[in-house]
Amino acid sequence: MKKVLYIELENCIGCRSCLAACTQCGGHEERNRNYVIDVNPFVDRQTMPMMCLHCENPPCARSCPVQAIQVHETGAVLSAMTEKCLGCQNCTIACPYGIPKFDVEQNLMYKCDLCIDRTKDGIPPMCASVCPTDTLQWVTEEELAVKKSQFRLSNGMMASMEDPYLENKTNVHVSLPGILEGKEKLF
């Protein structure tokens, strides 16, 4: 059954377990590819995770002159292929979310590949496996539909809707901080 990564931003407590877990995934060569950002650094301690949202039409791949960035059949946008990447860094400039990282020494771009080694076999990505607050979740599409419906208020309004807050359609789904209808959250 197809599962997707789902992010409930408001749950993040800034523990950075996702960063540490990311380094441990096969193929990541002990380098993390995700970010935890302070939302309002001089005011409060709220953080939010930022990671590749795996666009359906990825600008990074579109801007790559050598087609080094491939899209996996699961929809995951992979890191640059080592033998192809020429190190032009077009992808880092094209990404609307500022995700790809670049190793100057190795002349190689690397980015979140949704732990393709795991997710291709249905195993959750490392970040979702370790997130203690369910900020990062690995859910089926049915579960995702239920979660989304919880954000639909009974007055017909959407309390939290991702589309206007993203640039394009993505394979990772984001739930903005919002009001939940008829549901008490643990965190």
């Binding site: 939302v39 807050y165 993203l166 984001v174 903005l176």
Partner: peptide
Amino acid sequence: RISKFSGV
């Protein structure tokens, strides 16, 4: 992007 998500 975070500003888009959070409003801050």
